[in-house]
Design a protein around this nucleic acid. Structure first.
Length: 498
RNA sequence: GGCGUCGUACCCAAGUGGUUAAGGGAAGGGUCUGCAAAACCCUCAUUCAGCGGUUCGAAUCCGCUCGACGCCUCCA
């Protein structure tokens, strides 16, 4: 369909290079998802949005996409670790919010459901599967057995460990190649004297006291953190995948360890291309609960009345490879732009009823869509993509007064394509974002507001403008804005001051 | 200690060797409007943290200085 190359920065080779598919036209893509011990925050979602934009761009190129995004529901602790490490799921259960759950399984299910809800709110594409670690225990145990058979892993009194020395390429992804540095880097984590090398990491932890445990050839216990992704990626996508994604923190140790395990299991490259999303900051600092700058999607949407699609727009406004400093101003800017698209769409829909006329904007809009897609293919340059897409609204607005139905159809087609590619526009009447929060921005105002509006219209008719203005203020106090248009009053939910 | 990123207007931000330094937000002026809102038009960096260097030519390459930040530890 398209001759375009999809270029992405590759962590492994530290360069921007075209995404090469093992099977032409079919992208096999694995993205590391969250651990469901609490609500996912907007930083998590920045990473998932990167994956979403990869999927959308690939689809715009006409590729078939096999997209897998896991859910980690085993609470790996300070993982490779000593017994003092605290399990995150367990910690979640002991926390204040955790009191509501009967056990860690219940907790995991709850947070996984919330995660999917937030996923839908931000209009992320659903993956082919959402595999969960607990549902692939057998495969993980088999993988560990194979690694022992191949001499890449060994059993100790506390578990089964991967021998880093058995895989000379260990460190190729993160650059942690230097032995001394590597030992230095892991010095605090690894305090198991039975390990052959400090950098060796756990494939299986023996623990018959753990809240989540399974029976294995090594007795009761639970799997190491890294093995689940190796196993699930290979199960759903094959031994070599085209692209693997995650947050920048996962480069080491998680992805480094995935590479080691997977390549020792198959003797083949695990992933041909790796992308990592930079962390999001809030008000210039790392997001943390203690700084009070920690946001979840639901905090913003339910708590502050933020339009989830505006949140999406804000979160993709800076390319994934650069840090994004999220502020309320970011959100305001995004909201403003999104409103512009919605107004643009409204005018185009109105123009649909006019005579056809000549399509005066179709070609220009097609070119702008191409420019937008080009930007996305250039290492997901969302800043440029957003700029090009927004130019399209200007084209439509300039024509809007004289626009015939033919042009209107082109405008709507453009908006639909941009919506597909960037995901912040949802086709009317369509339901991928099936939440009340989104609906709230499109629904009718309450009867009281309608009634005030009618009184205001009457006041305007009799030219009692003082009364009309007073009524407008009252409507605003009720949380709505009125705009007078040739088609009658338009209502818009008043933006919550951020 | 190791690895890495960034510093462009009031704010966000593109641009990484060569026409007038994208775009958005905010701000100011104008058109339109009973007034607004939306939309449209105009204005808004001789300059890219600072200092040197390379080059015919640098925001873009090199060096130093200053400043901000991330990872290496559970983390997206």
């Amino acid at each position: 369909m398209s001759q375009r190359e999809f270029r992405l920065y590759d962590t492994l080779t530290r360069s921007v290079k075209p995404l090469v598919l093992a099977e032409p036209g079919h992208l096999r893509f694995y993205s590391c998802g969250p651990t469901v011990y609490s609500y996912a925050h907007i930083g998590n979602f920045r990473t998932f949005l990167t994956a979403d934009l990869v999927v959308r761009t690939a689809q715009a190129l006409g590729w078939r996409v096999s997209y897998v995004s896991n859910i980690t529901d085993v609470g790996h602790l300070t993982s490779d670790d000593q017994d003092g490490g605290e399990d995150r799921m367990e910690k979640g259960l002991k926390s204040k919010e955790g009191e509501a759950f009967v056990n860690v399984w219940d907790l995991a299910d709850y947070y996984a459901d919330c995660f999917k809800e937030d996923w839908a709110r931000l209009n992320l594409r659903r993956p082919l599967v959402w595999p969960r670690a607990t549902q692939h225990m057998r495969e993980q145990i088999l993988a560990v057995e194979h690694l022992i058979e191949r001499g890449n892993a060994y059993e100790t009194p506390t578990g089964v460990y991967f021998s880093v020395a058995s895989f000379p390429e260990y460190g190729k992804l993160s650059g942690n190649k230097d032995r001394e540095n590597l030992f230095q880097a892991v010095r605090n984590v690894v305090q198991d004297d039975n390990k052959r090398e400090p950098a060796d990491f756990a494939l299986w932890k023996k623990d018959d006291k753990h809240l989540m445990q399974w029976y294995s050839p090594w007795g009761w216990g639970f799997p190491g953190w890294h093995i689940e992704c190796s196993v699930m990626a290979m199960q759903y996508l094959g031994e070599t995948i085209d692209l693997h994604a995650g947050g920048e923190d996962l480069v080491f140790p998680h992805h480094e360890c995935e590479v080691a395990q997977s390549e020792c299991l198959t003797g083949k490259p695990f992933a041909n291309h790796w992308i990592h999303t930079r962390f999001l900051q809030v008000d210039g600092a790392k997001m943390s609960k203690s700084l009070g700058n920690f946001f979840t999607v639901r905090d913003l949407v339910e708590g502050k009345g933020v339009d989830p699609l505006a949140l999406r727009y804000a979160l993709i406004s800076v390319p994934y490879g650069k840090p994004l400093n999220f502020t309320m101003q970011t959100l305001r800017d995004a909201t403003k732009n999104l409103e512009r698209y919605r107004e643009c769409e409204r005018l185009a829909i109105l123009a649909l009823d006019r005579p056809d006329g000549a399509d005066t904007i179709g070609a220009e809009l097609d070119a702008l869509f191409d420019a937008t897609l080009d930007a996305m293919c250039d290492d997901l340059n969302t800043s440029v993509a957003l700029a090009k897409a927004l130019e399209g609204t200007g084209v439509v607005f300039r024509e809007s007064a004289s626009m015939g139905a033919a042009s209107a159809r082109s405008a709507l087609r453009f908006l639909a394509r941009i919506g597909d590619l960037l995901g912040f526009l949802v086709p009317r009447g369509d339901g991928p974002v099936e939440t009340a929060a989104v609906a709230a921005f499109e629904d009718e105002p309450p009867a009281l507001v309608i009634e005030m509006s009618e009184r205001r219209l009457e006041a305007k008719r009799v030219k009692d403008f003082a009364l009309a203005d007073r009524l407008r203020l009252e409507i605003e106090e009720a949380g709505w804005e009125v705009r007078d248009t040739p088609e009658g009053p338009q209502f818009k939910r008043r933006m919550v001051p951020l």
